[in-house]
């Protein structure tokens, strides 16, 4: 598990590129049950522009009402035990992505690799703000992409949790 996962997102349009980043994403991957859970505090995203960050929290994500984004589910296509073998392995992470209080079922390809006793997880996927009731006013519609690209980098340390022992410890 980790509390310092890095999540960044990019919106590219003809007018401007928008980028934000946080290093406070929390994630837990259970190699024995194939399950995972991630939580990202919305207020922790840092933007290049301070005003943009304010608008992101106040107007778009409404982080006062919806303080975190979560993604929970399981790896469906293969047993995660395979990730303990050397090299990187790609899995299909399927689950519920909750953003701005709206939940959708999504499938995301994720790459896992066990390195120096830590589980590294990488994923990139796309999200359409419109799917999550994130309203973009007409005046800035050309500035914000219809599809926002999200990148996740987690480096998780092994933990023994009560009830389900993380297989990373093996």
């Amino acid at each position: 598990m980790t509390k310092e996962g890095r999540v960044s997102f990019f919106s590219t349009s003809i007018i401007e590129d928008i980028e934000a980043i946080t290093n406070t994403a929390a994630g837990i991957i259970d190699l024995s049950t194939n399950q995972f859970a991630f939580a990202v505090p919305i207020k922790d995203f840092t933007f290049k522009r301070t005003l943009m960050q304010e608008h992101f929290n106040e107007n778009y994500m409404e982080s006062g009402k919806f303080p975190r984004a979560t993604f929970t589910g399981r790896f469906t296509d293969a047993s995660l035990a395979a990730a303990t073998a050397p090299g990187s392995h790609t899995f299909r992470a399927e689950g519920d992505l909750t953003l701005h209080g709206v939940t959708h079922r999504v499938a995301v390809p994720a790459t896992l690799e066990l390195k120096n006793g830590q589980l590294q997880a990488f994923a990139t996927f796309n999200v359409a703000p419109a799917d999550y009731n994130i309203e973009i006013p007409l005046l800035v519609r050309e500035n914000i992409a219809k599809i926002v690209r999200i990148r996740v980098v987690l480096i998780a340390d092994p933990v023994a949790t009560p009830g389900s022992r993380s297989a990373v410890a093996n």
Partner: peptide, 10 residues
Amino acid sequence: AQTDLLGQLE
């Protein structure tokens, strides 16, 4: 306890 990873995370 077995399944609620999000709860554990929180």
